[in-house]
Design a protein around this nucleic acid. Structure first.
Length: 304
RNA sequence: GGUACCAUAGCUCAGUAGGUAGAGCAAUGGACUGAAAAUCCAUGUGUCCCUGGUUCGAUCCCAGGUGGUACCA
Protein backbone atom coordinates (compact mmCIF):
# COMPACT_ATOMS: atom_id res chain seq x y z
CA UNK A 1 0.00 0.00 0.00
CA UNK A 2 1.32 3.43 -0.92
CA UNK A 3 1.79 6.00 1.79
CA UNK A 4 0.79 9.66 1.56
CA UNK A 5 1.82 12.68 3.52
CA UNK A 6 -0.85 15.34 3.14
CA UNK A 7 0.83 18.69 3.71
CA UNK A 8 -1.38 21.63 4.64
CA UNK A 9 0.28 25.05 4.32
CA UNK A 10 -0.90 28.63 4.38
CA UNK A 11 -0.44 31.94 6.15
CA UNK A 12 -0.86 32.24 9.87
CA UNK A 13 -4.41 32.56 11.09
CA UNK A 14 -6.09 31.20 7.97
CA UNK A 15 -7.46 28.09 9.65
CA UNK A 16 -4.87 25.39 9.05
CA UNK A 17 -5.62 23.75 12.40
CA UNK A 18 -9.30 23.40 11.71
CA UNK A 19 -8.87 22.16 8.16
CA UNK A 20 -6.16 19.68 9.04
CA UNK A 21 -8.32 18.24 11.80
CA UNK A 22 -11.12 17.74 9.29
CA UNK A 23 -8.73 16.03 6.90
CA UNK A 24 -7.31 13.85 9.65
CA UNK A 25 -10.78 12.83 10.75
CA UNK A 26 -11.77 12.04 7.19
CA UNK A 27 -8.83 9.67 6.76
CA UNK A 28 -9.00 8.54 10.36
CA UNK A 29 -5.41 9.51 10.93
CA UNK A 30 -3.10 11.78 12.92
CA UNK A 31 -1.46 15.16 12.52
CA UNK A 32 2.21 16.12 12.63
CA UNK A 33 2.66 19.79 13.38
CA UNK A 34 5.37 21.72 11.53
CA UNK A 35 5.34 24.79 13.68
CA UNK A 36 8.57 26.12 15.10
CA UNK A 37 6.82 27.89 17.97
CA UNK A 38 3.88 25.67 18.90
CA UNK A 39 6.47 22.99 19.52
CA UNK A 40 7.39 24.75 22.78
CA UNK A 41 5.12 23.61 25.58
CA UNK A 42 5.30 26.92 27.43
CA UNK A 43 4.03 29.02 24.53
CA UNK A 44 0.29 28.61 24.17
CA UNK A 45 -1.67 31.81 23.80
CA UNK A 46 0.84 33.70 21.68
CA UNK A 47 1.32 30.85 19.23
CA UNK A 48 -2.38 30.02 18.85
CA UNK A 49 -1.73 26.43 19.84
CA UNK A 50 -4.70 24.15 19.12
CA UNK A 51 -7.14 24.05 22.04
CA UNK A 52 -7.66 21.03 24.30
CA UNK A 53 -10.84 20.25 22.38
CA UNK A 54 -9.07 20.45 19.05
CA UNK A 55 -6.28 18.23 20.28
CA UNK A 56 -8.89 15.67 21.27
CA UNK A 57 -10.52 15.70 17.86
CA UNK A 58 -7.39 14.38 16.20
CA UNK A 59 -4.11 13.20 17.62
CA UNK A 60 -1.39 15.85 17.21
CA UNK A 61 2.35 15.36 17.33
CA UNK A 62 5.16 17.85 17.87
CA UNK A 63 3.01 20.29 19.76
CA UNK A 64 4.42 21.20 23.13
CA UNK A 65 7.09 18.55 22.83
CA UNK A 66 10.00 20.87 23.60
CA UNK A 67 10.81 23.46 26.22
CA UNK A 68 11.76 27.02 25.41
CA UNK A 69 15.06 26.23 27.11
CA UNK A 70 15.87 23.41 24.68
CA UNK A 71 17.98 23.85 21.58
CA UNK A 72 15.84 23.00 18.62
CA UNK A 73 16.16 23.65 14.92
CA UNK A 74 15.00 22.54 11.51
CA UNK A 75 17.54 19.71 11.62
CA UNK A 76 16.10 18.25 14.83
CA UNK A 77 12.69 18.69 13.34
CA UNK A 78 13.59 16.75 10.22
CA UNK A 79 14.87 13.86 12.33
CA UNK A 80 11.94 13.85 14.72
CA UNK A 81 9.27 14.22 12.10
CA UNK A 82 10.73 11.54 9.84
CA UNK A 83 10.87 9.12 12.72
CA UNK A 84 7.27 9.94 13.45
CA UNK A 85 6.14 9.30 9.90
CA UNK A 86 7.90 5.96 9.94
CA UNK A 87 6.10 5.03 13.13
CA UNK A 88 2.69 6.33 12.15
CA UNK A 89 2.69 4.96 8.61
CA UNK A 90 2.70 1.48 10.16
CA UNK A 91 -0.92 1.99 11.05
CA UNK A 92 -2.01 4.64 8.55
CA UNK A 93 -1.83 5.11 4.82
CA UNK A 94 -2.29 8.85 5.09
CA UNK A 95 -0.81 11.33 7.51
CA UNK A 96 -1.38 15.05 7.79
CA UNK A 97 1.50 17.46 8.15
CA UNK A 98 0.44 20.99 8.90
CA UNK A 99 2.12 24.18 9.94
CA UNK A 100 3.34 27.56 8.97
CA UNK A 101 7.06 27.12 9.48
CA UNK A 102 8.30 27.19 5.94
CA UNK A 103 11.68 25.75 6.57
CA UNK A 104 10.32 22.96 8.72
CA UNK A 105 7.96 21.94 5.94
CA UNK A 106 10.85 21.87 3.51
CA UNK A 107 12.99 19.92 5.98
CA UNK A 108 10.52 17.06 5.76
CA UNK A 109 9.50 17.32 2.14
CA UNK A 110 12.94 17.97 0.68
CA UNK A 111 15.41 17.43 3.47
CA UNK A 112 18.31 19.62 4.47
CA UNK A 113 22.01 18.84 4.30
CA UNK A 114 23.76 17.10 7.11
CA UNK A 115 25.95 19.55 8.95
CA UNK A 116 27.35 19.58 12.46
CA UNK A 117 25.50 21.34 15.23
CA UNK A 118 27.42 24.47 16.08
CA UNK A 119 29.36 24.54 19.32
CA UNK A 120 27.81 27.14 21.60
CA UNK A 121 31.17 28.64 22.48
CA UNK A 122 32.03 29.14 18.82
CA UNK A 123 28.64 30.73 18.19
CA UNK A 124 29.08 33.10 21.11
CA UNK A 125 32.59 34.02 20.02
CA UNK A 126 31.55 34.85 16.49
CA UNK A 127 28.58 36.83 17.69
CA UNK A 128 30.87 38.80 19.94
CA UNK A 129 33.24 39.43 17.08
CA UNK A 130 30.32 40.58 14.95
CA UNK A 131 29.10 42.92 17.68
CA UNK A 132 32.47 44.45 18.43
CA UNK A 133 34.30 44.39 15.11
CA UNK A 134 31.35 44.53 12.75
CA UNK A 135 30.02 42.44 9.92
CA UNK A 136 32.98 43.29 7.72
CA UNK A 137 35.36 41.27 9.88
CA UNK A 138 33.09 38.21 9.59
CA UNK A 139 32.83 38.72 5.85
CA UNK A 140 36.61 38.75 5.55
CA UNK A 141 36.73 35.46 7.45
CA UNK A 142 34.18 33.93 5.10
CA UNK A 143 35.98 35.17 2.03
CA UNK A 144 39.06 33.39 3.29
CA UNK A 145 37.35 30.18 4.41
CA UNK A 146 34.87 29.79 1.57
CA UNK A 147 35.30 32.16 -1.38
CA UNK A 148 32.65 30.26 -3.34
CA UNK A 149 29.91 30.83 -0.78
CA UNK A 150 31.14 34.37 -0.25
CA UNK A 151 30.05 35.08 -3.81
CA UNK A 152 26.60 33.56 -3.30
CA UNK A 153 25.62 34.70 0.14
CA UNK A 154 23.64 37.83 0.95
CA UNK A 155 26.49 39.74 2.53
CA UNK A 156 24.06 42.10 4.22
CA UNK A 157 22.51 39.23 6.17
CA UNK A 158 24.78 38.76 9.16
CA UNK A 159 23.09 35.54 10.30
CA UNK A 160 23.85 33.81 7.02
CA UNK A 161 27.39 35.10 6.90
CA UNK A 162 28.07 34.09 10.49
CA UNK A 163 26.49 30.69 10.05
CA UNK A 164 28.59 29.91 7.01
CA UNK A 165 31.72 30.80 8.96
CA UNK A 166 30.53 28.62 11.83
CA UNK A 167 30.16 25.64 9.53
CA UNK A 168 33.57 26.19 7.96
CA UNK A 169 35.24 26.37 11.35
CA UNK A 170 33.34 23.38 12.75
CA UNK A 171 34.10 21.11 9.81
CA UNK A 172 37.35 22.50 8.50
CA UNK A 173 35.71 22.46 5.07
CA UNK A 174 34.12 25.18 3.00
CA UNK A 175 30.40 25.41 3.68
CA UNK A 176 29.70 25.42 -0.05
CA UNK A 177 31.30 21.99 -0.40
CA UNK A 178 28.77 20.59 2.07
CA UNK A 179 25.74 21.98 0.30
CA UNK A 180 24.51 19.15 -1.88
CA UNK A 181 21.58 20.93 -3.47
CA UNK A 182 19.67 17.68 -3.72
CA UNK A 183 16.18 16.74 -2.67
CA UNK A 184 16.11 13.71 -0.40
CA UNK A 185 13.99 10.76 -1.47
CA UNK A 186 11.19 10.00 0.95
CA UNK A 187 9.40 6.63 1.29
CA UNK A 188 6.02 8.29 0.84
CA UNK A 189 4.15 10.51 -1.59
CA UNK A 190 3.64 14.14 -0.74
CA UNK A 191 0.39 15.95 -1.47
CA UNK A 192 0.49 19.68 -0.88
CA UNK A 193 -2.59 21.70 -0.17
CA UNK A 194 -2.49 25.45 0.41
CA UNK A 195 -5.12 27.54 2.16
CA UNK A 196 -5.70 31.11 1.04
CA UNK A 197 -8.13 33.98 1.23
CA UNK A 198 -8.09 37.53 -0.06
CA UNK A 199 -5.20 39.36 1.55
CA UNK A 200 -7.51 41.80 3.31
CA UNK A 201 -9.44 38.96 4.87
CA UNK A 202 -6.27 37.28 6.10
CA UNK A 203 -5.22 40.55 7.70
CA UNK A 204 -8.61 41.06 9.34
CA UNK A 205 -8.44 37.61 10.85
CA UNK A 206 -4.96 38.29 12.15
CA UNK A 207 -5.94 41.60 13.73
CA UNK A 208 -8.92 39.95 15.39
CA UNK A 209 -6.88 37.03 16.61
CA UNK A 210 -4.30 39.28 18.22
CA UNK A 211 -7.06 41.07 20.15
CA UNK A 212 -8.33 37.67 21.29
CA UNK A 213 -4.85 36.66 22.42
CA UNK A 214 -4.68 39.77 24.58
CA UNK A 215 -8.09 38.96 26.06
CA UNK A 216 -6.97 35.42 26.75
CA UNK A 217 -4.05 36.68 28.79
CA UNK A 218 -1.09 36.99 26.48
CA UNK A 219 0.41 39.61 28.78
CA UNK A 220 0.40 37.28 31.77
CA UNK A 221 1.83 34.47 29.66
CA UNK A 222 4.60 36.69 28.36
CA UNK A 223 5.36 38.02 31.84
CA UNK A 224 6.17 34.49 32.99
CA UNK A 225 8.89 34.21 30.38
CA UNK A 226 10.17 37.74 30.57
CA UNK A 227 13.30 36.59 32.46
CA UNK A 228 14.18 34.40 29.47
CA UNK A 229 13.49 36.96 26.78
CA UNK A 230 16.92 36.46 25.27
CA UNK A 231 16.16 32.86 24.33
CA UNK A 232 15.79 32.22 20.64
CA UNK A 233 12.47 30.50 21.28
CA UNK A 234 11.15 33.78 22.61
CA UNK A 235 12.34 35.81 19.66
CA UNK A 236 8.79 35.36 18.52
CA UNK A 237 6.07 37.68 17.28
CA UNK A 238 3.63 38.33 20.10
CA UNK A 239 6.21 37.96 22.82
CA UNK A 240 9.07 40.16 21.71
CA UNK A 241 6.79 43.18 21.33
CA UNK A 242 5.38 42.66 24.81
CA UNK A 243 8.86 42.25 26.27
CA UNK A 244 9.80 45.58 24.72
CA UNK A 245 6.67 47.05 26.27
CA UNK A 246 7.73 45.66 29.67
CA UNK A 247 11.11 47.26 29.07
CA UNK A 248 9.31 50.57 28.74
CA UNK A 249 10.01 51.08 25.05
CA UNK A 250 6.35 51.82 24.26
CA UNK A 251 2.85 51.55 25.69
CA UNK A 252 0.57 48.55 25.45
CA UNK A 253 -1.48 49.90 22.56
CA UNK A 254 1.66 50.34 20.53
CA UNK A 255 2.76 46.80 21.43
CA UNK A 256 -0.54 45.37 20.24
CA UNK A 257 -0.34 47.38 17.04
CA UNK A 258 3.17 46.06 16.43
CA UNK A 259 2.12 42.47 17.09
CA UNK A 260 -0.59 42.87 14.48
CA UNK A 261 1.77 44.43 11.98
CA UNK A 262 4.50 41.87 12.49
CA UNK A 263 2.04 39.00 12.26
CA UNK A 264 0.72 40.47 9.00
CA UNK A 265 4.26 40.69 7.67
CA UNK A 266 4.88 37.13 8.71
CA UNK A 267 1.78 36.00 6.83
CA UNK A 268 2.97 37.88 3.74
CA UNK A 269 6.36 36.20 3.98
CA UNK A 270 4.73 32.80 4.29
CA UNK A 271 2.70 33.47 1.17
CA UNK A 272 5.82 34.48 -0.75
CA UNK A 273 7.50 31.24 0.22
CA UNK A 274 4.55 28.87 -0.22
CA UNK A 275 3.43 30.40 -3.51
CA UNK A 276 6.78 29.55 -5.05
CA UNK A 277 6.00 25.86 -4.73
CA UNK A 278 4.13 24.97 -7.90
CA UNK A 279 3.13 21.57 -6.53
CA UNK A 280 0.79 23.18 -4.05
CA UNK A 281 -2.86 23.28 -4.97
CA UNK A 282 -4.67 26.22 -3.39
CA UNK A 283 -8.13 26.27 -1.78
CA UNK A 284 -10.22 28.46 0.46
CA UNK A 285 -10.35 27.11 4.00
CA UNK A 286 -14.07 26.50 3.59
CA UNK A 287 -13.72 24.30 0.53
CA UNK A 288 -13.31 21.13 2.51
CA UNK A 289 -15.13 18.91 0.02
CA UNK A 290 -12.96 20.13 -2.85
CA UNK A 291 -9.83 19.58 -0.80
CA UNK A 292 -10.76 15.98 -0.04
CA UNK A 293 -11.72 15.23 -3.60
CA UNK A 294 -8.43 16.69 -4.81
CA UNK A 295 -6.48 14.52 -2.35
CA UNK A 296 -8.54 11.45 -3.19
CA UNK A 297 -7.89 12.03 -6.87
CA UNK A 298 -4.13 12.08 -6.37
CA UNK A 299 -4.20 9.02 -4.12
CA UNK A 300 -6.27 7.09 -6.65
CA UNK A 301 -3.89 8.11 -9.40
CA UNK A 302 -0.85 6.84 -7.51
CA UNK A 303 -2.45 3.60 -6.44
CA UNK A 304 -3.67 2.58 -9.85
C1' G B 1 -26.52 82.17 9.85
C1' G B 2 -21.42 85.07 10.00
C1' U B 3 -16.01 85.04 10.15
C1' A B 4 -11.32 82.59 9.98
C1' C B 5 -8.45 78.44 8.80
C1' C B 6 -7.98 73.75 6.32
C1' A B 7 -8.82 70.10 1.96
C1' U B 8 -2.16 66.80 -1.49
C1' A B 9 -0.49 58.85 -1.17
C1' G B 10 -4.23 54.04 2.88
C1' C B 11 -2.95 57.54 7.52
C1' U B 12 -0.33 62.07 9.53
C1' C B 13 1.57 65.92 6.93
C1' A B 14 5.47 68.78 3.86
C1' G B 15 5.94 71.27 -0.87
C1' U B 16 5.68 73.80 -5.65
C1' A B 17 8.36 82.32 -6.03
C1' G B 18 2.73 78.84 -11.63
C1' G B 19 6.16 74.02 -15.52
C1' U B 20 1.31 67.60 -12.79
C1' A B 21 4.74 66.37 -6.25
C1' G B 22 7.72 63.88 -1.38
C1' A B 23 8.68 62.45 3.94
C1' G B 24 7.39 59.25 8.15
C1' C B 25 4.24 55.33 9.21
C1' A B 26 1.16 51.69 6.88
C1' A B 27 1.55 48.82 2.37
C1' U B 28 3.75 45.97 -1.78
C1' G B 29 7.50 42.65 -4.24
C1' G B 30 11.52 39.37 -3.25
C1' A B 31 15.64 36.17 -1.00
C1' C B 32 16.04 31.96 2.12
C1' U B 33 19.89 24.64 3.57
C1' G B 34 20.52 23.68 11.86
C1' A B 35 18.19 30.89 15.23
C1' A B 36 13.24 30.50 10.11
C1' A B 37 7.21 33.62 13.95
C1' A B 38 14.56 34.26 12.66
C1' U B 39 17.51 37.28 9.34
C1' C B 40 18.10 40.24 5.01
C1' C B 41 17.12 43.09 0.24
C1' A B 42 14.16 46.21 -2.99
C1' U B 43 9.80 49.42 -4.17
C1' G B 44 6.11 55.60 -4.08
C1' U B 45 1.12 53.40 -4.96
C1' G B 46 -1.62 60.30 -6.38
C1' U B 47 -8.46 63.17 -10.61
C1' C B 48 -2.95 67.56 -5.36
C1' C B 49 -11.85 68.23 -3.08
C1' C B 50 -15.33 70.03 -7.32
C1' U B 51 -16.70 73.80 -11.18
C1' G B 52 -15.36 77.96 -13.61
C1' G B 53 -11.74 82.23 -14.45
C1' U B 54 -6.73 84.37 -15.41
C1' U B 55 -2.44 82.09 -18.02
C1' C B 56 1.26 79.20 -23.34
C1' G B 57 0.62 76.25 -18.86
C1' A B 58 -3.05 75.98 -12.44
C1' U B 59 -2.26 71.31 -7.28
C1' C B 60 -0.44 76.48 -6.34
C1' C B 61 -3.37 82.78 -8.10
C1' C B 62 -8.90 84.54 -8.35
C1' A B 63 -14.37 83.47 -7.84
C1' G B 64 -18.16 80.18 -6.57
C1' G B 65 -19.47 75.42 -4.58
C1' U B 66 -18.88 71.15 -1.26
C1' G B 67 -16.87 68.98 3.20
C1' G B 68 -14.21 69.59 7.90
C1' U B 69 -12.37 72.40 12.26
C1' A B 70 -12.44 76.70 15.43
C1' C B 71 -14.56 81.11 17.04
C1' C B 72 -18.81 84.61 16.91
C1' A B 73 -24.01 84.66 16.86
Amino acid sequence: MQKFLIVVVGPTGIGKTKTSIEIAKHYNTEIISADSRQIFKELKIGTATPTEDELKEARHHNIGSQSIHDYYSAWEFEQDALKLTEELFKNHDQLVLTGGSMMYIDAICKGIDELPTIDQQLRDDLKKQHDTEGIESIRRLLKQLDPVFYEQVDLMNHKRVIHAVEICLMTGKPYSSLRTNTIKKRPFHIIKVGLELAREEVYNRINLRVDQMIEMGLLEEARQFYPYKELNSLNTVGYKEIFAHFDGEYDLDKAIELIKRNTRRYAKKQLTWFKKDTETKWFKPTEFINIISHIDGLILNCNS
